[in-house]
Design a protein around this nucleic acid. Structure first.
Length: 478
RNA sequence: CGGGGUGUAGCGCAGCUGGUAGCGCGCUUGGUUUGGGACCAAGAUGCCGCAGGUUCGAAUCCUGUCACUCCGACCA
């Protein structure tokens, strides 16, 4: 069937080799280029534009929840990094150090921030004195460096872009509320902007952030059944406050420690987008972050009036959509394939026949469905199409996740699923670290999270058979 | 950090039984085309990843090194 014909020939099919597919897509869609520094990447205009839309959407949500943006230094003195014991131990293996300034050796090494808890704490100590100074709701957009062993564009690079929220509150309840509030913001953002369904839950002791009291996470499932931690929100309790002596005087003139949170999302989300929505023709971008929402392709553009009509439509619609015309002298077929690879949600074709009939051809990227729309109805049709594409992507991703989510009460079944049909595995756990370690050792799966709305599926731990405490989502993860 | 693979034109590759580099795509120019990756003609493009060594002579053989990539251990 012509319908099944593959139009894009330069991308390895997903089911043949998923990682190669991923590499092909990011290169062919011009998202990144490799850099001369090992493990780093150059984010190209098309990739960066996606990030800018992610930033804008997230930043709006942060502002609406009362947060302010700040900027902290990129360097952390060694002594500062070491103030909170668990925190240093967690990050020590992967920090980059600056030892020289020019040709002079520094008296104290500077760490290139892997995260900025210590910087925020050091600052909070100076500016928080009274309950009237609370809460402090700060966020920063920056890059951080973690010296990883193996890297993969967007999913794990030595340097990556992110935002890190850092807040300080008067009491434990308020900090906990903030932690959950921001987790919910993340989940809502993933679904409404990225069209990615997520599982919300709490990390186990083993998987939680170094220095945190509790870590909450949103977990997404990629096309190949591998889980991706897509955002985390941490409640620090007063652990950092005690290490950094961040105290304030309360209404009763008593000294109190603050309670803190932090939460972050990274350029990894772009990797998630690719691996959740992409197909064998390349990227499929959710309309709300697509740098170009509509690409206009004039057909027989050398003919009288075609380019004029196409430009006219383009400028008319540019107030409503991110729209671009390609009037290069490539053949139309080439352009079709090109913008499919790049995941542009809607293609608008306009040629002599259309002009005669006062219509345009709209083709949606997700289903390739074609429609013929009168020129004066384009605004409404496109707006409807973009919404429909978003909903369809979310539906498809949700179905895929549900199909790849298994409930398991028997260990051999667990192993079988991980090996044969990877995905989320819902299984009961006794709460012991030993069982978590054993499961990882035997299956390669880690605990992704303890979901909030969990119904027990049995009363015995999947690993040791003893009394189970909670349901856990398990899976292989990036 | 362990194991495998790969580095030759912008991209994908051939050349690896030593004799000084080729193909396809892309790029430039001109013409014909244009509703699913068009065609013809004429061009341009190389420190053969890098550093040593063997040799009269190295893309080719040897040693080292760096990068990319895949698979495992650690992490967003």
């Amino acid at each position: 069937m012509a319908k099944d014909k593959k139009f894009v020939e330069e991308i390895t099919p997903m089911n043949q080799d998923f990682t190669q597919w991923y590499t092909d897509v990011i290169k062919k869609a011009d998202l990144v280029d490799y850099s001369s520094v090992r493990g780093c990447m150059i984010i190209r205009p098309y990739g960066y534009a996606i990030w800018e839309h992610i930033q804008r959407e997230l930043d709006d949500r942060f502002k609406k929840t009362g947060h302010e943006n700040v900027y902290m230094p990129m360097f952390i003195p060694e002594s500062l990094l070491q103030k909170e014991k668990d925190h240093v131990e967690g990050f020590a293996p992967e920090v980059a150090w600056v030892t020289h300034g020019g040709s002079e050796k520094l008296t104290e090494k500077l760490c290139v921030r892997p995260t900025s808890e210590t910087l925020f704490c050091d600052h909070y100590k100076n500016i928080i004195h009274s309950y009237r100074d609370l809460p402090k709701l700060y966020n920063q957009w920056c890059s951080v460096v973690r010296w990883e062993k193996t890297t993969r564009p967007f999913l794990r690079t030595l340097e990556f872009l992110w935002q890190e929220g850092h807040t300080a509150h008067a009491d434990a309840e308020e900090a906990q509320e903030e932690t959950i509030r921001m987790l919910n913001v993340y989940a809502e953002f993933c679904e409404n902007v990225l069209a990615i369904p997520v599982v919300k839950g709490q990390k186990t002791e083993k998987e939680k952030f170094a220095g945190a009291r509790n870590t909450y996470t949103i977990e997404a499932l990629m096309h190949n059944g591998i889980a991706l931690q897509s955002g985390t929100s941490h409640n620090f309790g007063d652990g950092f406050a005690k290490a950094f002596e961040i105290q304030y005087t309360d209404k009763n003139n008593q000294l109190q420690y603050v309670h803190q949170t932090s939460w972050g999302m990274t350029t990894r989300l772009i990797g998630a987008l690719i691996m959740v929505h992409g197909d064998d023709s390349g990227l499929v971008l959710p309309p709300r972050v697509a740098p170009v929402q509509v690409v206009v392709i004039p057909i027989s553009q050398h003919k009288e009036g075609v380019l004029e009509k196409a430009s006219e439509i383009c400028s008319r619609l540019s107030g409503s959509f991110r729209i671009r015309m390609d009037d290069s002298d490539k053949s139309p077929g080439w352009k079709f394939s090109e913008y499919e690879m790049k995941g542009v949600p809607v293609r608008l074709e306009i040629g002599p026949k259309d002009i005669e009939k006062r219509q345009a051809v709209l083709v949606r990227r997700d289903t390739r469905e074609k429609s013929f729309v009168p020129l004066d109805e384009l605004e409404d049709s496109i707006a409807g199409l973009l919404d429909s594409i978003h909903m369809n992507l979310l539906d498809k991703a949700t179905r895929l996740r549900d199909e790849k989510t298994f409930t398991v009460v028997d260990f051999s079944q667990f192993e079988q699923i991980i090996n044969e049909t990877p995905g989320f595995i819902k299984a009961m756990w006794c709460g012991d670290r030993a069982c978590e370690d054993t499961i990882k050792e035997k299956t390669g799966a880690t605990s992704r999270c303890i979901p909030f709305d969990a119904e027990p599926v049995s009363d015995k731990c999947i690993c040791c058979g003893k009394e189970a405490k909670t349901l856990v989502y398990w899976g292989k993860a990036y």
